[in-house]
Structures are given as C-alpha cells and as structure tokens.
C-alpha cells in the first residue's frame, strides 16, 4: 500500500468529482483500477484510473452514492491530504496488437466512463465510438475530452442528450458491425442487457470485455 498526496479536487456536478493525486512511481496499464481510502482507514473501495498512462499525476472519477460510506468521505478530501492506494488491479485492458488496427465500441454508464477516458487519453489515435449512458446531460463528464462525433450521450431522464433513452435502446436501433471490439463498463444490469444485444447482433464472445462496478 502506498500513500499519495492529493493535488486537487475537481467538482464536475454536485455529486461527481475528480481527485488528482501525485503519481510518484506508480505505474499501471490503462483500464486498470486501484483501491482507495484515507490513509490508515480500513474502508477502501475500487476506483478505475481516469488519467492516462503518460500523465504525471493520477486521477479517479467518483460519484457520491446515496448512503455511500467511502464515496461520501472521499468527496471531502482536500489538497494536501494523503490517500492510500493499492493496486493496480484488473484485466480490463486493451490488447496491444488491436489498438491501432481495430474499430472499438465503448459502452459506459455513469462513472463507468472512467477507464474509457483513460484508454482514449492514452491512445488518442484509436478508432472508436463511445456510448455514454446517464440520466441527465450534466453527467456528460468532461465531454470535451472526446472528439465530438465519436461521443454519443444517451440520456434516459431528459431529452437533452444526443439520444433520448438508454444505451441499450441505442444499440438496438443502431446495430454494431460484427468485427467491432467492444468494452462495457458500469452497472451490471446495463452490462447484462447490452451483452445480450451485442451477442444477438453477431459480436462473438472474444471481443467483448466487461468491468462491473455494482
């Protein structure tokens, strides 16, 4: 376990924030996650790394969950505080030999966009499309990080997004070519449904990668 100093907190919405920490000598593969908690505390949770491999800092994107223990506490951390990091963990990663050759479809709900942000920031030349499922437009976290026509915001509670409905509705209406490599990240109901849809559209098991948050 390593202690990392907090550099700054960036509030994106009233409940969602980014913690930027010193990177020190920490290395990871884009897509991986860490476990995070206040130094010395036993309460720790998993968070995907939001920043890129080459950034000289480490960032995580966190949404405060109602009645959530850790996500609420972390929101109150300040620059200069120390957080304990363990990891990196996880197998949600890009295949080196596919990055510059394949067409990618990233599907994320809510803060599930975090590892996708890291993918794209690490490999800005990737050929991708990103479906981001949220309730309201304000949850289009740092949308300016993505090339405009590659990012499709699906809003389920408002008509303000690029598509009104869930990401799964979008997928049903816009079938995916079968040679696409798909990465799914976020809540397990979306992953379960989207997986089913993609499979029916002929994407076979190999190219679907998933990371479940809750």
């Amino acid at each position: 376990m390593r202690s990392h100093k907090v550099i700054e907190i960036r509030n994106l919405t009233p409940s969602t924030y980014i913690i930027r920490m010193e990177k020190n000598d920490f290395t990871f593969k884009t897509g991986q996650y860490i476990t995070l908690g206040f130094s010395g505390s036993i309460d720790r949770r998993e968070y995907s790394i939001y920043s890129s491999e080459q950034d000289d800092y480490l960032e995580v994107l966190i949404k405060e969950v109602e009645d959530g223990l850790v996500s609420k506490k972390l929101k109150r951390c300040k620059s200069g505080d120390y957080l304990d990091i363990d990891g990196p963990f996880g197998h949600f990663s890009l295949k080196e030999n596919e990055i510059s050759k394949k067409k990618f479809l990233f599907i994320a709900t809510g803060t599930g966009i975090s590892p996708i942000h890291s993918f794209i920031a690490t490999h800005p030349d990737m050929d991708y499309q990103l479906l981001h499922g949220v309730r309201k437009e304000e949850e289009a976290y740092e949308r300016e990080s993505y090339q405009n026509n590659n990012y499709i915001l699906c809003t389920s509670r408002e008509k303000s997004g690029d598509f009104h409905g869930r990401v799964t509705d979008y997928l049903k209406q816009n079938p995916v070519p079968s040679d696409t490599v798909c990465y799914l990240c976020g809540n397990c109901h979306m992953i379960y449904e989207a997986y089913d849809i993609l499979e029916k559209q002929g994407i076979n098991l190999g190219p679907i990668h998933t990371e479940v948050y809750f």
Binding site: C188, Y192, Y195, E199, L205, T210
Partner: peptide, 16 residues
C-alpha cells in the same frame, strides 16, 4: 446464471 455471475464479478459468462 449470467446475472449472478456479473454480480459476483466473475470474468466469464455461461456461454464461455
């Protein structure tokens, strides 16, 4: 069950 496997965070599904 696939939905239970997802909640267990297992890294495969029934088909696999």
């Amino acid at each position: 069950s696939d939905s239970i496997l997802l909640q267990m965070r297992r890294m495969y599904n029934i088909k696999r």
